[in-house]
């Protein structure tokens, strides 16, 4: 399995269905997709195309109905909670649209939290270095409500990166940000990929955000329909527009 070493996360023929009987919905329909290591992959698609479900399944947060899921070379399909918890501690990082910081903790405490949950010795210098790397070295003691949206998202990225995860999952990371803050955050992610070889899997519906990625895959009605490498924002937007215009 030498190939998997170069693949951060992989879905093989994954199917995910919700509901029963007439209400049955197939959110993912036989998706096979690999997120290469050291690369940034964006997942795009119209609303309800299954892109969030794809991210959840890839991260082992949601159970798949059929198919197999691998994370950093380990199979996570049907893995017990203990194994998944361990993976979340060491192998994965998460960034969300609405930041999801813990409101009662300071920026520094938020970033240190995953380490403390993993019962790893917390070196203050490391935590500060990670916060400094996202440009918030002077905001250590601020609580989330005292920070702007862009700053909160950068704290969230620092929290995700502090455990040096093999893959970073980002769910609409710029969805709640103004365009200037969004650019700062995307530039930060780009730098992490280029400088440190970080793997990123990102779901977005913003063509401008997707254009920062190395590759963009398109999802429609739970199926992979296209893949663009290093596209421009215009190309992504046009591709998306044709998908959304397609008859249902």
């Amino acid at each position: 399995m030498t190939i998997t070493a170069a693949i951060a996360a992989e879905l093989r023929d994954v199917t995910r269905e919700y509901g029963l009987g007439n209400a049955r919905v197939r959110a993912l329909d036989g998706v096979s997709l690999a997120f290469p290591a050291g690369s940034w992959t964006a997942v795009m698609g119209p609303s309800g195309s299954g892109k969030s479900t794809l991210l959840h399944c890839a991260a082992g947060l949601d159970r798949v109905t059929g198919g197999r899921v691998f994370l950093a070379g380990r199979e996570v399909t049907g893995a017990p909670d203990r194994v998944l918890t361990d993976l979340r501690r060491r192998t994965m990082g998460f960034v969300f649209q609405n930041f999801n910081l813990i409101g009662s903790l300071t920026a520094e405490q938020n970033v240190a939290l995953p380490l403390r949950l993993a019962r790893t010795r917390v070196a203050r210098a490391d935590v500060r270095a990670v916060l400094a790397a996202v440009g918030l070295g002077d905001r250590l003691r601020h609580r989330p409500r005292e920070l702007s949206g862009g700053q909160q998202q950068r704290v969230a990225i620092a929290r995700a990166m502090v455990t040096r995860p093999a893959v970073l999952f980002a769910d609409e990371p710029t969805g709640a940000l103004d365009s200037a803050s969004a650019r700062t955050v995307l530039a930060l992610l780009r730098e992490m990929v280029d400088r440190d070889g970080q793997s990123i899997a990102m779901v977005t519906h913003d063509p401008a955000a997707a254009a920062w990625a190395d590759a963009v895959v398109f999802l429609s009605d739970g199926r992979l329909v296209d893949r663009l490498v290093r596209p421009s924002a215009r190309e992504v937007a046009e591709r998306l527009a044709t998908l959304e215009a397609a008859p249902c």
């Binding site: 979340r88 995953p114 949950l117």
Partner: peptide
Amino acid sequence: LLRIVGGGR
């Protein structure tokens, strides 16, 4: 959220 950043049951 605690679970997602690595908290166990």
